[in-house]
Design a protein around this nucleic acid. Structure first.
Lengths: 313, 313
DNA sequence: AATAAGGTGACAGATCATGTCACCTATAAG
DNA sequence: CTTATAGGTGACATGATCTGTCACCTTATT
């Protein structure tokens, strides 16, 4: 095998192993010790940050910050990646904001002027979001890392009743309607909560506190942690197919759609304090809902509509 | 300069030029003709698809499908790209669906097992969309190319009143609420229209027809093409700050928010046929609206609310 | 002290890369 | 039909680079 190709494979090998010895290389690539050493020298000259450990049980370690082995793309693939980046970028302050800038430059460097023009053109003709998404989320990257590493963090949060200090263990982050939300376990309230990231005023590590084991809890099932309080009120109503469609687009863990005797039902619970929110939300379904229970909720809705009629004149 | 490095630079050079001659290489890299030829041989062995043209004014051409010069990333960057891809992927049938699969494999190949685990973990904890976005868009890639190249296409479209055949010139594509939409110029109606891509039943090139020059029209200003018909009815109402916020999240080119004397106003037009749609849309703003004009619209809204109240019991 | 890991220097032989030169093929312009 | 310009081949000598071997050194663990 020629040297160039061998070095290339070595790059991949090293990156995958993170830790290796000379004998590993000697066996893997069928070369002499001297050549293995010379190859390592070559890699280091190329900028691969290797650290050697002497003595028994020694070996080489790859330092974390390294560049991965080069990847080749077709122009079609660069198109797709570039678009994906732009789509994410447009949501202000994605957790990766800074990074995309440098990737963008790398892509544009390697692309021919004509292709570059096509890319520009595509960005003018393709969008993920119809309008602008102006809201910033703070500390997104830190919160994400806390979620991945299952750490507890201490935040100052601007709630409805003024700022409060909370210890939370983030579970997942998601974007919705231009805001970033953080699903988390509230250590003090011992309950699942959702926070809006732009309302996080400050953030620090809560080193001492040990988090729960939430390995099994992911963004796909975090809602299962949601538990109504004792005061929660159950509700139920029939819903049309169009209503169910709308529900899919905007829904909350406290509600679900079920089918019974060929009819669709929207059921769930709400906290007494949330009455205004729920009435507003249900009103959004308009004529898609019927047979609303309990009657107190129906009464609130009626009141809501009546108020609206009054405010019209 | 060593051969390996020279070949690498050549890759970039060729990709940028698309078209070059032997003498170009000889001068650029200061090598003999024989070496230049040998280098080209090496490139071709590496899979670079070069096409040679003999005779006077000949030279080499790069065939389009080629791989771009390799790009190196940090693991942080791969994280970001991987996430961007996943985010786009989750919107069923993005225009680039097939491509992402192969990119994904390339990334995972070059990443260490530990980093791979972190990536998996991240995907479980980070999402752009709260729910699933199940709706497919057909022909997205073809429509996008038509938009980029300003070509007219002929589609069969499932409209409200059954399928129709139309000639359209796509302007831009955007995703919203789980659907892909296509802004386009309708050649027969000589007007700007928006189509839902999943309702495009079939599609073919309309070669003969020449499109308008829409170079200046992009996704950012396409709505300027929107013109109300003669029957359109103007409306106007006051809107609260919260209402304006909601408007930003879901709006239509036929409406806009203006400020007058420290008050916000929502103004616009609607077609008589759209009355149900507009009433539904305005009802979604609930108490954020007041002083609705014309009174016929106000009356429709009142009727809408009254019907809702009646349907409650 | 023994062992197992990385590290150096020297050298010969093998392999590879390069430039030169002579000569061939294909195409376009005049 | 000639000339100019483009790519393309084969042969060969020279020099550069790569490789394996061998002797010997340093560092850390047991």
């Amino acid at each position: 095998m020629k040297k160039a190709e061998r070095i290339n494979q070595m790059l991949r090998y090293i990156n995958q192993k993170q830790r290796f010895t000379l004998t590993d290389l000697i066996n893997k690539f069928d070369i002499s010790k001297r050549t293995a050493l010379r190859d390592i020298e070559a890699l280091e000259e190329m900028g691969v940050p290797l650290y050697a450990e002497y003595g028994r049980y020694g070996g080489y370690r790859l330092v974390r910050t390294m560049n991965l082995p080069p990847i080749t793309f077709t122009s079609h693939e660069v198109f797709a990646l570039y678009f994906a980046m732009q789509a994410i970028k447009s949501l202000a302050r994605s957790p990766f904001q800074v990074t995309f800038q440098s990737i963008s430059e790398k892509f544009l460097e390697s692309v021919s002027p004509k292709q570059r023009e096509q890319i520009d053109n595509m960005l003018n003709r393709l969008s993920f979001f119809h309008g602008n998404q102006p809201h910033e989320g703070h500390f997104l990257e830190v919160i994400l890392m806390a979620a991945i590493e299952q750490k507890v963090i201490r935040i100052e949060y601007a709630g409805a009743k003024g700022p409060t200090d909370r210890s939370i263990q983030p579970i997942a982050l998601y974007a919705r309607k231009g805001y970033w939300y953080c699903q988390a376990y509230d250590v003090e309230k011992t309950a699942y909560r959702v926070f809006r990231c732009d309302r996080v005023l400050s953030l620090k590590d809560a080193n001492e506190e040990h988090g729960l084991d939430l390995k099994e809890i992911t963004i796909h099932n975090a809602h299962s942690l949601w538990k109504p309080t004792d005061q929660a009120i159950s509700f139920s109503c029939r819903i049309t197919a169009e209503g169910a469609e709308k529900f899919k687009q905007e829904n909350y863990p406290s509600m679900k759609i079920t089918e019974k005797e060929e009819e669709l039902y929207l059921t769930g619970t709400y906290e007494p304090a949330e009455i205004n929110f729920i009435v507003n939300y249900l009103a959004g379904f308009g004529k898609s809902l019927s047979g609303i229970e309990p009657s107190s909720l129906k009464e609130e809705l009626r009141q809501y509509y009546t108020d609206l009629i009054r405010s019209l004149s």
